[in-house]
Write a protein that binds this DNA or RNA. Structure first.
Lengths: 329, 329
DNA sequence: CTGAAAGCGCTAACAA
DNA sequence: TTGTTAGCGCTTTCAG
């Protein structure tokens, strides 16, 4: 636990020189550098980030806000963020809000208290009002979910177009009765995906029937099961389902199987997100792949740029339809 | 971005008094306290953790090391850690090693650089040699995977006993030919689970056949598929499988289904960990539940105690066999 | 109960 | 190239 002072003393130089060896070795003669390096080794010295951070007025920490770590949707995005962060000498503070405003507040305070230099929010349930206020004074980026017409820079995909592609795929397979398992339409992406769904249906002259549209409260498996159960109870049963998240789709899959029907023969299913489990199901799941990793990289790049004081532009990335067994006859 | 100085000035008191209002309001007269509180509000003051941390020689960050965030095994443990941490005014720095020694080094350095006050490792691939050295000078706890006879305190379950229970369950169901899908036996838990498996088999006078024991390189789904494929190629096919992780078991499930056999009628399957996806499969998976959340809480408590300078004892928690469809005829 | 002052470990401006 | 020194924002000891 030696400090810079002791190193300087041992090496017979000033603390400034030690600091230079640490941060810009080229600005020191090889001879003195060696002396310092030896002293560092002898004393087992490790520079304290506490001192450095205070002096530099930075924490070199990036706060990443997600609803829950158990949602596999975020893992690849986080990987992208983390990789980029580390490459720029930052670390990430991964924080779960559990969609709990109290939790949210703790994390907002961490930013205000300079425990983190900036924030990437991926939480659709976040209090946009408060976040926008925070964003005025502290570098902030939205990832995936964003605010239409808001002032916070974001990186996302075109949800409407993606949903349109998914539904079109089902229709082209011959399905005329396509159901939609959507999440709560208080979320922007849910509204957008519904529009994409309707657009595809209309384009092919198919009717949009309210009984085939189900809005779930949450995104988890169990809600997918329940949604599918209700859909199966219809007298005029849909022949295909588009679910706006893989976990919902996997729930639907499970329920279809349980009811003795077969996927895709009786009912075809398309999910959204391409989470890793989506090819472990039986049958494997056709799904929309978001460029997760790339999204994370982009978000982190944008945030680091903001921290540096640069202006950044919002970005919309491309998606891709991944066709697997759940729609292959 | 006001600092404590400006608040003091505005309130007409010394910085010491402001600090007192922040940390021990009862040590200040209500009258001065009010003055200070008003100044804080007026200036929108937020105390800087940078200054406080340097002064207190602490970061109030706990480093949590996991192999990969995509492994659902860790999510509940992390929740336990995080909750406990927050309750004690700590935050966690969740770090993925990707089983990459280079990554590992970065994180070890973060500890040495005082970016975190202590470390909980859940990475079975970690360099124990290096970790032990680090643990001599920095608070360290092992969670789940531990070192037999090592000096680092740990919290874990009795893997041998759990495996014994799982296999005994299969045997009691009438299975005489039980296969084991184990992970690499360089890991302690893998060795222990094999011993538990053998113990149960021996106890019931059943032969232990090497062809029925498969060691995988990794724990993911795909390796489970592959292991099961080989097991199914045996002329004398096992009638039950115990996999040491749910992801492996889910892979096995998938492969059994693909080969036209039925679970549990043809082959019964038991997993390990009770990850959330284990009851989304078809059929749902019988598995060993570890008290994940409790493990996280315990690990965090232990670490915080170590940071305080207290001695802590290693703890072995109880597990539980959760019987579901994959073993229910 | 309050204030003055030292100092946590580091960096960087300035001087030599 | 190297050293001196101020100071980042805070807490805490010591006096009063």
């Amino acid at each position: 636990m030696a400090n810079i002072q002791e190193v300087a003393q041992k090496a017979g130089v000033s603390v400034a020189t030690v600091s230079r060896v640490l941060n810009k070795p080229s600005s020191v003669t090889p001879k003195t550098r060696l002396k310092v390096e030896n002293a560092i080794k002898d004393l087992n010295y490790e520079p304290s980030m506490l001192g450095r951070n205070l002096r530099n007025s930075e924490s070199r920490l990036l706060l990443v806000l997600i609803p829950s770590i158990s949602n596999p949707f975020y893992t690849e995005i986080i990987n992208g963020i983390e990789h980029t962060a580390i490459a720029h000498n930052y670390n990430i503070l991964l924080c779960q809000t559990d969609s709990n405003p109290q939790r949210e507040n703790i994390y907002f305070n961490m930013i205000k208290n300079r425990l983190a230099d900036g924030l990437i929010s991926m939480d659709p349930t976040i209090n946009m009002q408060k976040l926008s206020e925070l964003a005025e004074t502290h570098p902030t980026i939205l990832c995936s979910e964003y605010e239409e017409g808001g002032s916070i820079p974001y990186v996302t995909i075109d949800s409407e177009l993606a949903a349109y592609h998914a539904v079109k795929h089902l229709i082209k397979l011959g399905n005329k009765k396509v159901a939609l398992i959507n999440s709560d339409e208080k979320f922007l992406y849910a509204r957008q995906r519904r529009i994409g769904y309707e657009k595809a249906m209309k384009e092919f002259g198919l009717p949009i029937r309210e009984e085939w549209i189900y809005n779930t409260k949450e995104l988890d498996f169990q809600h997918g099961v329940q949604a599918m159960r209700l859909l199966l109870q219809q007298k005029d049963r849909p022949s295909a389902v588009f679910a706006v998240s893989d976990t919902l789709a996997i729930g639907a899959l499970k329920e279809i199987n349980a009811s003795g029907l077969r996927v895709p023969d009786d009912i075809a299913v398309v999910g959204f997100d391409k989470i890793s489990f989506s090819n472990m199901t039986n049958p494997t799941l056709t799904t929309i792949a978001q460029p997760m990793y790339q999204m994370g990289v982009t978000a982190a790049d944008m945030l680091i740029n903001r921290i540096k004081g640069n202006k950044v532009e919002s970005i919309v990335l491309d998606h891709e339809l991944v066709i697997r067994e759940s729609t292959m006859g």
